[in-house]
Design a protein around this nucleic acid. Structure first.
Lengths: 197, 197, 197, 197
DNA sequence: CATGAATGAGCCTTCATTCAT
DNA sequence: CATGAATGAAGGCTCATTCAT
């Protein structure tokens, strides 16, 4: 239910009243219970529904024959796109998992883990192919996804606006080669002291 | 109030009952209202109190004469340390800002922004000093902090365990120079296609 | 409606949902309202319908030329048979009259009173014919019917099983001549003290 | 809670609203939940509380060294007294056990059974002492108690008025020696046919 | 100053009843 | 004529807040 996702995203699980969802959907309160057996179930289905398309797209893209770079770029695009197009669900997923009902917490952790695992596999392949150095795959995956979420977050929460494609590219670039300026000749004394700021 | 922070972190704002806080603090329910005028105020003060030490430490460290690398390292250490030692508050801050009372939402956004700005300034200095390439400072700051939070998050929420110092170093390294393996000679054809995974 | 009586008996008036009745009857929920204007009316008609056959049979039997004993036996048989065969309705009638809607309360009291009156008339005739001693007819009638109901009740509610004919005879015998052992010679000192039990 | 018993007795379990109980008790709705955890528990405690005095009195009386007749008389007095003085609880107990929540049903059946067993023991002792003929003890006990309840019932439900002591005596007399007129000489042709009524 | 009993607004959920199809 | 989706009033229960002790 589109209406449910919006209201949940706007108000959060606890503050959302079933009556609000009903009104948002343009139906009576009782009608909601014709389709869902409880408020918890509405939430669960809203999350599952809102996530599955994203997960499916991700799966599809990563199955293709792509370079490491393009795979990360695909993840970045999909993730940013998900957070923009499904901002309601993304907002829900972003809420700390500790803060809601146990059953739902598990559901959300599972989804996060599923995404994480996909990235882990891409990175692991990169390491195996000797394109990446020996990083902790889980740590790296989290850094990558965390970076993406942190960039998209303000968009979701504060209506900032940005350009998706260039953002995705820049985040990938940071993740792959860092922010340091490639100094032509040397690797020496790369990080001299900077003045206090 | 230490007690309040713990309970809020454990249960979330909505699920926390004032009586729980009182019991955790070892006082009567009425006594809580001697010191705070409402549940919302308890929450607010708990967040402010739990954050201010972190913010102060950060301020202090960044005021010192340090290399860019060391400054980022300091941020990483402080941030990870904050998320571990004040996991209660961190957990609260991590909950999506849209999900709580409007007044508190602003408070939390302000805090995030304050941290973000510090990192932005470090990065801006790095760019000015030509140590970093021309990245969008806010984007980079968010990627950095998002990476940190994403790595520490599972620790807060799921009791994972890890070693702080090495984690901080690795995240800084990824942020600065990326995950790509430095190939001695060339920069050419750096990311060949990898097989599907 | 047979279905209604069964459901009412199974679940009680309050717990029965109109939808249950509809399903039990194999029709749609709306269809029920084609034949009855409200839940209360369904209940009323179910009780009336379930009772009228019993009342008619009783009427018929008592109209016959029978001895006092046989009339009571007829009442006993009919009452027990009613409580077994129409256990659904009996169960409904057994629920305390104070516990349901005012209008239905009156209906049920009327039915009870009707049965009671029949027994009262039998007893009154017995007294007039000097076969029975001068007992309060209403009191005696209630004792008789109360005894019958109390014996049959556990059958209705707890699935006990017993033989109707012998039970009817024994209850009549108790009512007519009591449980005391007829001591051949004397009526003296009939109830000596017994030890505590 | 006196108030609860009254309201339950007046309205029945289902129709009683917790708010009614609260109002009857002169307190707020929430206050009720300070002392009981649920509506069901209020009911349970009301029944237990209202019954225990009756059960205790019965126990005490039957423990005494009394003749069979006096014991039954004691039961009759206590039972009638209970139904008058605790008419609220009696009314609750009288409601058909099938009609309420399973847990409460069992509670009520247990109480009934406890009373029944006491009478069964009295009767069994009477049979053993050869004062009573070989009747089915459970059947007899139910007839006796059913008679008592049926007589007292209308008092509870319809405000009839009667004299307890003489009623108790008459019911015992019927139970012990029946309603038949003791004809001096003979037992022959005791129940001649009576005309239709 | 500390307390916790009392309060009642508010929310999830049920279900008798209606009515468009 | 039959249906069942839609409805909203009503009730059980929670909990932030107050206030008499």
């Amino acid at each position: 239910m589109q209406a449910a996702m919006q209201v949940f995203a706007q108000e959060g699980y606890e503050k959302t009243r079933v009556e609000d969802i009903a009104r948002a959907a343009g139906v009576g309160k009782g009608t909601v219970y014709e389709y869902f057996s409880s408020k918890e179930e509405i939430f669960e289905q809203a999350v599952v529904k809102g996530t599955e398309e994203y997960l499916a797209s991700l799966e599809r893209e990563l199955a293709a024959q792509l370079s490491l770079e393009d795979k990360l770029l695909a993840v970045a695009r999909q993730h940013l796109h998900f957070m923009v197009s499904q901002r309601d669900v993304a907002r829900i997923l972003a809420s700390s998992p500790g803060l809601i009902l146990p059953r739902l917490k598990q559901l959300m952790l599972d989804i996060r883990r599923e995404i994480e695992d996909k990235v882990v596999r891409v990175i692991a392949a990169g390491i195996k192919g000797e394109h990446l150095r020996q990083v902790d795959t889980y740590l790296a995956a989290r850094v990558f996804l965390g970076g993406l979420s942190a960039v998209a977050g303000p968009h979701c929460f504060q209506e900032e606006s940005w350009e998706l494609e260039s953002t995705a590219q820049e985040i990938c670039r940071i993740f792959l080669t860092g922010v340091v300026k490639r100094q032509s000749g040397s690797g020496a004394a790369r990080f001299p002291s900077v003045s206090p700021c």
